[in-house]
Amino acid sequence: MTDAAAPDASPPARAAAAPGRWKRWLLIAIPYCWLLALFLAPFFIVLKISVSDTVIAQPPYEPVLDLSQGWQGIKDWWSALDLENYSALFDDELYLASYLSSLKIATISTLLTLAIAYPMAYGMARAPKSIRPTLLMAVILPFWTSLLIRVYAWIGILNPDGLLNAFLLWARVINEPLYIMNTETAVYIGIVYSYLPFMVLPLYASLEKLDETLLEAAADLGCPPWKAFWKITVPLSLPGVIAGCFLVFIPAVGEFVIPDLLGGSETLMIGKTLYNEFFLNRDWPVSSAIAVLLLLVLVVPIAIYNNIQAREIGDKA
């Protein structure tokens, strides 16, 4: 009798603390399955279509996996796959040039963003505590405004008959209008402008928690301020620098709106090439192959970034 009652004798709180096993699994399963189905599975479909052939049909690719044919259907499907689209990517200079130009533009704009964001974040971290939340808010606010709107705002400024030229001509700084619009310079301005908050926020987070007694100690020991900055502040803010650079670089490589609206036809970027291949040429297999290669280029930075994120959670939890 007592034996049979034993399992129920555990304190009720303990039993309640561990929710039913199936409930726990259900809780995990809902977001897990959603992301598996709508985020991960689509990549395999992209991979599959990137090795299919282009046809003029709906959908515009072949072969389509036909499971009603049974094993024969799978075999036909498998044997018709090839790497033709990938070799096309390497044969045509347009694609390779787009890749390289994307990487170049993303790298340079990440560095430019860092150069503008670091003094800003540093100033914010040194500002009186009372106004810091307001400054932080002021950095975050533009991020809530649509990227499209922010890029559009620059068209009116950079156009040959835009506000910048009107101002500079009026101030007699220049005699001829500057042609910035539809050049790579305009793309740099657009990327730096759009991604600045992503760089400032992690930088500010790491600069704000910097222990000021370290700088005082350095000063007491006769270290000049610039040296203290270089030896103490910069290394301690490095996690913020790294996080910020990833947050700018990765999306910038595949950026579409900025090069499309500001870069004109002469600026090549892979996101734009993919978009045009898909919407203008309706070549789904080739655009899938571009997406796969773009992902391969980005998989290392994304993995590092994910690792940093996950570790940060691990430290705090």
């Binding site: 990765i250 993919l274 789904w284 899938s288 994910n306």
Partner: peptide
């Protein structure tokens, strides 16, 4: 768990053209 956290963080930086294309194909 690692796969899950990857799937949560990756969309934050994934270029939009890739996300858009892959979902459309799905």
């Amino acid at each position: 768990r690692t796969l899950f956290s990857g799937m949560v963080y990756a969309p934050l930086v994934m270029p939009e053209v890739i996300t858009g294309l892959s979902m459309l194909l799905l």
